[in-house]
Design a protein around this nucleic acid. Structure first.
Lengths: 133, 133
DNA sequence: ATGATATGTAAGATAATCTAACATGGTTTT
DNA sequence: AAAACCATGTTAGATTATCTTACATATCAT
């Protein structure tokens, strides 16, 4: 079942393709990398190679930027969202199993600290998935 | 419902990526194009750009070559398979509608002429789809 | 043995990408 | 208002990827 993750994280696209798919300039894409919002793979010849996940993430970043959020903010948001997702995944995995008190505390703390608008972008997130069946 | 087709026929991959995905050399890929087994799009700068469909097709070609079939044979096979698929699609589309006698005759004729092993490769065909969810 | 087929390889040209540096228009901060 | 900062544009020179064309070669069929 994690084959899907492998596929989506497979580095396939050079920056030119990513530019078209995301409508971002190369400068922007590299700038976001510089600020560690993404970390694409590299070919043997040092060319960047992006995965579907990377592209989704770039679309998300674009969305957040449109909302006026700066690099630092986006970095935090993506981080929180990541752990949120891994939590949900974990929760689904052992559906019946109880969550440890510690995990629960962390989850609640995050929900409190970063409440409000946080998942608006997740509507746009799967945007790229429309390109692949 | 044809959005899927659009996605799968979207030119995204440079030849380098295709080489890795198909384990064919650039020489081979261009040679097959020369013999009109595929016709990838081109970028503004004349670089070839391949779609998911193209890559599937290359995997199919590879399979047919392994079976000892030559360019001319593969060309015909792909052609027949194409019309076969469009027929099936059409058949599914107007599921209830009767097939015209003419179409039926063509379908039967093809099944007779190209019977036997013809769909063995279609097992390998969707091979690439494992890369995308 | 001859010829055709599929692929390898080399050369020179062009395109795409890389890094690094400086430029710039909008925001903040002082 | 001036200074500093942020996100992006632009340029330059270097490197890698791809293109076309041509010739080489091994395998297979005639």
């Amino acid at each position: 079942m994690s084959g899907k993750e492998i596929r989506r994280s497979m580095p396939l696209f050079p920056i030119g393709t990513v530019m078209q798919l995301t409508e971002l300039t190369a400068r922007q894409i590299r700038y976001y990398e510089e600020h560690q919002l993404i970390s694409p793979a590299r070919t043997e010849g040092n060319r960047r190679l992006y995965s579907l996940n990377d592209i989704d993430r770039l679309l998300e970043i674009k969305d957040l930027i449109d909302q006026g959020i700066n690099m630092a903010g986006i970095k935090q948001l993506l981080l929180v969202k990541e752990q949120q997702e891994s939590l949900l995944e974990q929760q689904a995995k052992s559906a019946k199993r109880e969550v440890t008190d510690d995990e629960l505390r962390k989850l609640l703390r995050n929900e409190l600290m970063h409440s409000g608008r946080l998942n608006r972008s997740s509507l746009r997130q799967g945007d790229l998935s429309r390109f692949f069946h």
